[in-house]
Amino acid sequence: MDVFMKGLSKAKEGVVAAAEKTKQGVAEAAGKTKEGVLYVGSKTKEGVVHGVATVAEKTKEQVTNVGGAVVTGVTAVAQKTVEGAGSIAAATGFVKKDQLGKNEEGAPQEGILEDMPVDPDNEAYEMPSEEGYQDYEPEA
């Protein structure tokens, strides 16, 4: 019985440690998101679009440190934060509304985080759909 109880105690310690790591990862992701939003706020009209992409990228980098179902929630929060940063930029006159959601080359930025393969159960990952990809044929 002692062996059984000791095993359960060790398992509990492992769960607590994993929860603490997840909590730490979420806190880091939130900190990076805040950094990115402050970065966007300090940019001029020309830099705002690039700044919004930076927020998304920093958040995406930190999301990889967070495991399990938390990833889905962090990704949703990050996307809403990026959308909010863009709205703030438009409201303050840093950028025109028609410039939001495009990178410096004018290509749409939507789907940055949505296409990231995420499995809350950590069982399997699927690649994003290939609808947006084109076949590449090298020139002879």
Rank of each mutant, 00 (worst) to 15 (best):
M1E: 15
M1D: 15
M1A: 15
M1I: 15
D2F: 07
D2P: 01
V3Q: 14
V3G: 15
V3W: 15
V3H: 12
V3N: 12
F4A: 00
F4V: 07
F4P: 03
M5P: 15
K6C: 14
K6L: 07
G7S: 10
G7M: 10
G7E: 14
G7F: 14
L8H: 00
L8C: 04
S9V: 11
K10A: 05
K10Y: 15
K10E: 02
A11S: 00
A11M: 03
A11K: 00
A11N: 00
A11Y: 10
K12N: 00
K12R: 14
K12Y: 15
K12Q: 02
E13L: 12
G14K: 11
V15A: 05
V15I: 03
V15T: 00
V16E: 02
V16S: 05
V16M: 13
A17S: 06
A17G: 04
A17E: 03
A18N: 00
A19L: 11
A19D: 00
A19K: 01
E20K: 11
E20G: 12
K21R: 11
K21I: 12
K21L: 11
T22K: 00
T22F: 15
K23T: 11
Q24V: 11
Q24F: 09
Q24H: 08
Q24K: 15
G25A: 05
G25N: 08
V26K: 00
A27E: 14
A27N: 09
A27L: 08
A27M: 08
E28K: 09
E28H: 06
A29Y: 11
A29C: 06
A29S: 01
A29G: 04
A30L: 11
A30G: 01
G31I: 14
G31R: 13
G31E: 11
K32T: 03
K32N: 09
K32I: 09
K32W: 05
T33S: 04
T33V: 15
T33A: 15
K34P: 00
K34L: 14
K34R: 01
K34V: 12
E35M: 06
E35Q: 14
E35Y: 01
E35N: 02
G36S: 06
G36I: 15
V37M: 08
V37S: 01
V37T: 03
V37W: 10
V37A: 05
Y39I: 03
V40W: 15
V40F: 01
V40S: 01
V40L: 09
V40A: 05
G41L: 15
G41W: 14
S42G: 04
S42Q: 13
S42Y: 12
K43V: 11
K43I: 15
T44V: 05
T44N: 01
T44I: 10
E46N: 15
E46G: 01
E46C: 06
G47N: 08
V48P: 00
V48C: 03
V49K: 07
V49S: 09
H50A: 13
H50S: 06
G51A: 08
V52H: 01
V52C: 08
V52M: 07
V52T: 03
A53F: 03
A53M: 12
T54C: 12
T54M: 03
V55Q: 00
E57G: 07
E57K: 06
E57Q: 13
E57L: 05
K58Q: 05
K58W: 15
K58S: 04
K58F: 09
T59Q: 01
T59S: 06
T59W: 11
T59H: 01
K60I: 15
K60T: 10
E61D: 07
E61M: 09
E61Y: 02
E61W: 08
Q62W: 13
Q62S: 07
Q62A: 11
Q62K: 07
V63P: 01
V63F: 05
V63I: 14
V63H: 01
V63L: 11
T64M: 14
T64D: 06
T64C: 08
T64V: 09
T64N: 06
N65D: 06
N65M: 13
V66P: 02
V66C: 08
V66M: 12
G67E: 03
G67D: 01
G68V: 12
A69H: 09
V70P: 05
V70H: 01
V70N: 02
V71R: 06
T72V: 10
T72F: 13
G73F: 10
G73C: 03
V74S: 02
V74W: 14
T75C: 09
T75M: 05
T75D: 04
A76I: 07
A76N: 08
A76G: 07
A76E: 09
V77C: 04
V77Y: 01
V77T: 03
V77G: 01
A78E: 04
A78C: 13
Q79V: 10
Q79G: 04
Q79A: 12
K80N: 04
K80L: 11
K80P: 02
K80R: 10
K80I: 09
T81H: 03
T81Q: 02
T81W: 15
V82M: 08
V82Q: 01
V82C: 06
V82I: 07
E83K: 05
E83G: 05
E83M: 02
G84I: 11
A85W: 08
A85Q: 05
A85V: 15
S87A: 10
S87F: 11
S87N: 15
I88F: 03
I88L: 08
A90K: 14
T92Y: 15
T92C: 10
G93V: 12
G93A: 06
G93Y: 10
G93E: 02
G93Q: 15
G93F: 15
G93T: 04
G93N: 04
F94K: 05
F94Q: 04
V95A: 15
V95R: 02
V95T: 07
V95W: 11
K96W: 12
K96S: 12
K97E: 08
K97F: 07
K97V: 05
K97M: 14
K97P: 10
K97Q: 04
D98T: 09
Q99K: 06
Q99F: 03
L100A: 03
L100G: 13
L100E: 09
G101Q: 13
G101D: 08
G101A: 04
E104L: 09
E104C: 15
E104N: 15
E105L: 06
G106S: 06
G106V: 07
A107Q: 04
A107M: 06
A107E: 12
P108Y: 09
P108T: 12
P108H: 14
P108C: 09
P108A: 15
Q109R: 09
Q109W: 07
E110P: 10
E110S: 12
E110Q: 03
E110K: 07
G111V: 15
I112N: 07
I112T: 09
I112E: 03
I112Y: 13
I112L: 03
I112M: 13
L113S: 07
L113K: 05
L113D: 13
L113M: 07
E114C: 05
E114Q: 10
E114V: 09
E114D: 03
E114H: 14
D115N: 08
M116D: 03
M116R: 15
P117C: 10
P117V: 08
P117S: 04
V118D: 09
V118W: 12
V118N: 14
V118H: 08
D119S: 01
D119F: 00
D119N: 09
P120M: 02
P120G: 10
D121F: 08
D121Y: 11
D121W: 02
N122H: 10
N122L: 10
N122E: 07
N122T: 08
E123V: 07
E123R: 04
E123G: 06
Y125T: 07
Y125L: 13
E126Q: 07
E126C: 05
E126V: 07
E126G: 11
E126F: 14
E126R: 08
E126T: 09
E126I: 02
E126Y: 05
E126M: 12
M127E: 11
P128I: 07
P128G: 02
P128L: 08
P128N: 07
P128S: 06
P128T: 05
S129V: 05
S129R: 06
E130C: 06
E130Q: 11
E130P: 09
E130I: 06
E130S: 04
E130G: 11
E131H: 07
E131V: 11
G132H: 03
G132M: 08
G132S: 05
G132D: 10
Q134T: 02
D135F: 06
D135S: 02
Y136C: 12
Y136A: 05
E137T: 04
P138N: 09
P138V: 05
E139S: 04
E139K: 03
E139G: 06
A140D: 04
